[in-house]
């Protein structure tokens, strides 16, 4: 084996990665352009809104509830080291609305929705349903991708808002039941501490994460290879790539919104 072989392999991997990044960027631009140009498929948008938004409510709500509760316990135990137990309501609130609500909500939607979109579109691809759409004069980007991307971009901020409320409620319940907080004081501290931008920034993150989740689901589904293995691979890639991109986008948005 040539001593330069590992370097060659690395180069090929980097080129593949750059090619993939370029393909995803072009796909994202195409998706956005199809969202804003007619025709619009209202029925497909409505179905996507229910699938992505309404049906994700239980999983996002439960995740937020338990996270809020655990966060309250952690902050109370950690704060006790420097007599700061009283800040539990404030830290739970800011932690949930700025970070944990959008990120955990985004990840739960990625697990539930990106996988389902990739599997559905991937199956359509391998069973020639995408080709059939084209022969029926229907653009798959417009019929399949645009409604899902728009629905996720609008639905995930709403899910984040619900998750924020439920997460704070989780902290409140634990605060009352386990940590001896006064209910009215807990809520008053939470409300007084939060600023509008804390909440809005989380919702903007939610919209970005929703866009990423639907985009990755559609992209990997559309590029699914043949057979059950191809669809399985597309599904896995959709979940992994959307999760990683959510973390990356979260860091970039936090830098933009809150860096000193």
């Amino acid at each position: 084996m040539s001593p330069l072989a590992p370097l060659g392999a690395l180069g090929r991997a980097v080129l593949r990665l750059l090619g993939e990044v370029g393909a995803v960027a072009l796909y994202a631009l195409s998706a956005v352009s199809h969202v804003v140009r007619p025709p619009f498929y209202a029925r497909e948008f409505g179905v996507a809104l229910i699938q992505i938004g309404w049906l994700s409510l239980p999983v996002v709500g439960l995740t937020a509830l338990f996270t809020g509760g655990a966060l309250a316990l952690q902050i109370y135990a950690g704060g006790a080291r420097f007599n700061a137990e009283a800040v539990v309501p404030q830290i739970v609130a800011i932690g949930i609305v700025r970070e944990l609500g959008p990120v955990l909500g985004g990840l739960m939607v990625a697990a539930r929705v990106a996988s389902s979109i990739a599997a559905e579109i991937g199956t359509m691809k391998v069973t020639e349903q995408i080709d059939a759409l084209v022969t029926l004069s229907t653009d798959p980007m417009k019929y399949l991708t645009a409604p899902r991307v728009l629905a996720a971009t609008l639905a995930v901020p709403v899910l984040v808002a619900v998750g924020d409320s439920v997460g704070i409620m989780g902290g409140y319940l634990v605060g009352l039941a386990r940590l001896g907080f006064n209910g009215a004081a807990y809520l008053e501290n939470t409300v007084n501490f939060l600023e509008t931008w804390d909440i809005l920034s989380g919702l903007v993150k939610g919209a970005a994460f929703g866009f990423i989740v639907a985009l990755m689901g559609c992209y990997h589904g559309m590029n699914s290879r043949r057979g059950a293995q191809g669809v399985g691979r597309a599904t896995k890639q959709a979940v992994v790539s959307s999760s990683v991109l959510i973390f990356a986008a979260n860091y970039i948005l936090t830098e933009l919104f809150f860096a000193a």
């Binding site: 069973t127 020639e128 349903q129």
Partner: peptide, 11 residues
């Protein structure tokens, strides 16, 4: 019009 091998009906 096209008839696909597996039907390609929309599930």
């Amino acid at each position: 019009g096209m008839l696909f091998q597996g039907g390609a009906l929309f599930d």
